[in-house]
Design a protein around this nucleic acid. Structure first.
Length: 923
RNA sequence: GGGUGGUUAGCUCAGUUGGGAGAGCGACGGCCUUACAAGCCGUAGGUCACAGGUUCGACCCCUGUACCACCCA
């Protein structure tokens, strides 16, 4: 083995081996429990960001964990066609080529999209492989696959036939740039600085005017009422009268509606039912006329006076303001902060716009979806996300599923010239079913919302509507791993559609993880220039390339300089190559229950070092086991030392802790337990404890064999324990140790996952090693504080302690000498006087390090005094507690007893240190 | 305005029936000790946001306040 861990030398090669050997496929064992995860399909044209890396790492750990437990495990991958996002990307490419999709035509455009998909669609899956993900690649799916389209179409048709899909003219969120409706969830409402304009609206009878306040003056051309609060004394008497609407020169009524906020603006609100969601509802209540004044580009249409026709909306805004001002009708303008709706893809201001769209009646579907969570058929982890789910589901609106795009699942509906709608699987089917002969039919131009199709993901990808074996085996799936930001978008939709069509839940558990942010807690985004590419963390990247990457293709070039500066400051050396295992381990360590996950490069470095630690510990183990009898033949002629029994005992506890954490989705706790065991117990102590045995020519062959056997077997076990979290390094080393550990098999991936054996928990050995550690740590403390060079071997004198202490420490004499770097160890008999020494305590045993020539009296006094003070503080706390009669009376006997024991211990320790202090003070 | 999460060492975070505050990174001091300097040994550092309450006992349970973040209106 190399002296240092080189991730790039092992990772890709093992991945290839695994994939070629088909290890990722389900075992097909029908006796075993099925376990299945469906990947949340990433956008096909996208690339893997830190959030994906985090999510895929978690799924892979779960999958590998269950696969090793013998479950029939399926992890199915795939990508989403992502209607708007993909169409935008391809349109941008076309623009660069100097053409547009309209010039190309629909069919040609779709061909172009497929070409693009072929070209870039592999990006995500390549990156997934680099992360060590182990999905069944042979079952990879795409939401635009033929088979999947069949499921999508079937769902649409059945919902239509069951009266759960309808077509209606409603206000939708219209994106005037992308020319499509988008859902509420794709609209971002951000506060922006705007204005509040106050206009005078003259009363029709000429008796005066009302002042209305608005943030959108241009819509006044579509006003069809002015509303006041019915109990507002200022305006009450005007209800029923009319306004002569300026510029448009129409008469509109003044109405009373308690929706009006008396405090806002002037208390008079202009009502534009065709261009505002609240006004729309008020329009319904009062039967108001709806005047649509915008076209699809959000330019003014022919419903407005000649002068404004064809004007862009914001130009029209200033024109309207100017014209009203010229008429003396502009009362005032004040600055105003308002929430502006913007499309999350296009960034332009969204218009509420009246169009014909397809809707799903969600209420009946939502009821079932709520029930499934209430009755525990589906569990959220952490639990509190259920509230978020409920609150959204209980207040759900009908779902607009049509999109005015070309890329997506075309709606299976046809119209005749009289405007009748026919829904069916094909034009032929529709003609036949409705006896249409050869009248002209045209298919609906629109496609379905991407989330409509991804709502079918769990069962649509398993072959539904056919009743396939896969569907029977793996559905409902086991767990969905997702970010909380997608609960509404996706989880809710899957719940509704799956329950309706499969009459069962899509998954039993929803594990909701946090969102990965940068080390300052900022969201990672291209425009902030703080994105990290998981692949760069794996392979490393030099500073210049990183700067180049972060500043290229920027939407806002003016940020370039800032980003460059910030990047050079934060990563002056670029990024080192940390390898996949270190990256994954970092993800797990961060996967606690919080919502924000701050990713600090310092963490990943620490885990790369951890990998190196495992690597080097394995080198040591192999150096000492290779070519020796380690009991790999199953022979029993070995003897386990105290240290062997201790590390085996600790291993059982670790196995238990790791399993428990994994079962509860606490990857942070699992990774921590493993880290502690490997580094702090196995490497720092056990490996060191093994040296005096292996290097001692006098040690018996049986004990040496016991030590080798333990060294190699604990290592082999811990590799299996760690494999789901760090697949590559564990495989690489496992291949080298498996034979010596008496194991066989082609890959660690398919070995059994370690399970604790309670019988091997050995409290006796644990106590003995704890005592030994105390002695060694006591001596090290003296050495460290007294600045005695590690090279100087020092004598140690022991005093006091029970017979058992003496027995245990005598047995461990060789270990003590090596680990504390001693010259000698001896016991002081009662009555024998001790030389002037530095002192420490290990339980009841006093440790004396003779001071001759070694120790500075003042320093030693100070050190003792510090210890005494520390004990004193603790002592007075315990004393206070025990002097309190309420505590002694009311606390459980065991607790009181424990405190009494503690008191005695502290007292005796303090006494002895005090005595020592006095002794050296005499010098 | 409604809701959710958070506030623990300089930084990032654990702390699961209420019974002696932990880790990693960083800091400081000492070491190339035959697996590892990507390392080893030692040390320092916290009124657990604040104020009440319950309890013999509160980082933990209850109430309120402040601040931060996010979601919804």
């Amino acid at each position: 083995m190399d002296k240092t861990y080189q991730p790039n030398a092992i990772e890709q090669q093992w991945y290839k081996t695994w994939e070629e050997n088909g290890y990722f496929k389900p075992s097909g064992d029908t006796q075993a429990d099925p376990y299945c995860i469906m990947i949340p399909p990433p956008n096909v044209t996208g690339s893997l960001h830190m959030g994906h890396g985090f999510q895929e790492s978690i799924m892979d750990a779960l999958i590998r964990y269950h696969r090793m437990q013998g479950d029939n495990t399926l992890w199915q991958v795939g990508t989403d066609h992502a209607g708007i996002a993909t169409q935008m990307v391809v349109e941008r490419l076309l623009a660069a080529e100097g053409t547009t999709r309209h010039e190309l035509g629909r069919d040609k455009f779709i061909e172009k999209v497929w070409e693009w998909k072929e070209q870039s669609g592999g990006n995500i899956t390549r990156q997934l492989r680099r992360l060590g993900a182990s999905p069944d690649w042979s079952r990879e799916r795409f939401t635009m696959d033929d088979g999947f389209y069949k499921a999508v179409q079937e769902v649409f048709i059945r919902l239509y036939e069951d009266d759960l899909i309808y077509r209606g003219k409603r206000l939708v969120n219209w994106d005037p740039k992308l020319h499509t409706a988008i859902s509420d969830l794709e609209v971002l409402n951000e506060e922006e600085q705007g204005h509040l304009w106050h206009f005078r609206y003259p009363l029709a009878d000429g008796s005066g005017h009302l002042v209305v306040a608005t943030t959108r003056p241009e819509t006044m051309l579509g006003d069809t009422a002015v509303a006041v609060h019915p109990e507002d004394e200022r305006y009450q008497h005007l209800i029923g009268k009319a306004i002569k609407l300026p510029l448009a020169n129409r008469e509109i009524p003044i109405i009373g509606d308690d929706y009006v906020d008396r405090e806002f603006g002037t208390g008079c609100v202009k009502i534009t039912p065709a261009h505002d969601f609240n006004d729309y509802e008020m329009g319904q209540r009062h039967n108001l006329e709806m005047i649509n004044i915008l076209d699809a580009d959000a330019n003014l249409n022919n419903e407005v006076p000649e002068k404004y026709r064809g004007m862009e909306r914001f130009a029209a805004r200033s024109q309207v303001v100017d014209d009203l001002d010229a008429l003396g009708l502009l009362e005032k303008v004040e600055p105003h902060t308002l929430k502006v709706p913007r499309g999350d893809r296009s960034g332009v201001v969204i218009e509420p716009w009246l169009t014909d769209q397809w809707y799903v009646k969600t209420q009946p579907l939502a009821e079932e979806a709520i029930k499934a969570v209430e009755d525990g058929s589906v569990n959220f982890v952490p639990k509190n996300y259920e509230n978020m789910y409920f609150s959204w589901m209980r207040d759900i609106q009908d779902w607009c599923i049509s999109r005015q795009l070309w890329w997506g699942h075309r709606i299976p509906a046809w119209y005749d010239d009289s405007g009748n709608v026919y829904v069916g699987r094909s034009e032929e089917e529709v003609r036949q079913k409705h006896n249409l002969g050869d009248i002209a039919l045209r298919q609906d131009e629109d496609v379905l919302d991407t989330w409509f199709s991804s709502g079918l993901w769990t069962f649509g990808t398993l072959g539904w509507p056919e009743d396939t074996e896969e569907l029977k085996t793996f559905h409902p799936t086991s767990v969905l791993v997702t970010g909380f930001d997608i609960i509404f978008f996706w989880v809710a939709r899957m719940m509704m559609l799956t329950l309706y069509f499969k009459k069962e839940v899509p998954f039993h558990t929803v594990y909701v993880h946090g969102l990965v942010r940068d080390s300052h807690g900022q969201k990672m985004s291209k425009s902030k220039g703080n994105v990290l590419d998981p692949i760069d963390l794996i392979d490393g990247i030099d500073l210049e390339s990183l700067v180049q990457k972060r500043t290229s293709g920027m939407m806002q070039p003016h940020l370039r300089e800032k980003i460059e500066k910030q990047t050079r400051k934060e990563f002056p050396e670029g990024l080192a190559a940390y390898g996949t295992d270190a990256l994954r381990y970092t993800y797990y360590s961060l996967a606690s229950t919080g919502r924000d996950i701050k990713f600090d490069v310092g963490r990943i470095e620490g885990f790369r070092n951890f990998c190196n630690k495992i690597w080097n510990a394995s080198r040591y183990v192999l150096q000492n086991c290779d070519g020796h009898d380690c009991g790999q033949d199953g022979s029993g002629d070995f003897e386990l030392s105290l240290a062997d029994r201790w590390i085996i005992s600790q291993l059982q506890r670790t196995e238990k802790a790791v399993r428990e954490a994994m079962d509860n989705y606490r990857f942070d706790l699992a990774s921590q337990a493993l880290y502690d065991f490997i580094w702090a117990e196995y490497c720092s102590w056990y490996l060191e404890l093994s040296k005096p045995v292996l290097w001692d020519d006098a040690a018996s062959p049986a004990v040496k064999k016991g030590t080798r056997r333990t060294l190699i077997r604990v290592l082999e076990t811990v590799l299996r324990l760690a494999h789901p979290m760090m697949p590559f390094i564990t495989e690489e080393i496992w291949q080298k140790v498996k034979d010596l550990a008496g194991q066989s098999g082609d890959t660690i991936m398919l070995q059994s996952y370690p399970e604790a054996d309670e019988h091997r928990i050995d409290t006796e050995a644990e106590a003995a090693i704890a005592a030994l550690k105390q002695v060694i740590e006591g001596v090290r403390n003296i050495r460290g504080e007294m600045k005695i060079s590690p090279a100087t071997k020092i004598p140690l004198i022991l005093r006091g302690g029970s017979a058992e202490d003496r027995q245990n420490l005598d047995n461990a004499r060789a270990l003590m000498i090596k680990l504390a770097s001693l010259e000698s160890v001896s016991w002081l008999n009662t009555g024998e006087s001790a030389p002037a020494s530095a002192t420490a305590l290990a339980g009841d045993v006093e440790l004396l390090v003779p001071m001759a020539g070694l120790i500075d009296v003042a320093a030693e006094s100070a050190r003792l005094q510090k210890e005494i003070d520390k004990l004193g503080k603790e002592l007075s706390r315990v004393e206070g507690k025990l002097k309190n009669p309420k505590f002694v009376d009311k606390a459980p006997e065991a607790v009181v007893e424990k405190e009494r024991g503690k008191l005695a211990e502290l007292q005796s320790a303090q006494d002895r240190l005090q005595q020592q202090l006095e002794e050296i003070s005499k010098l």
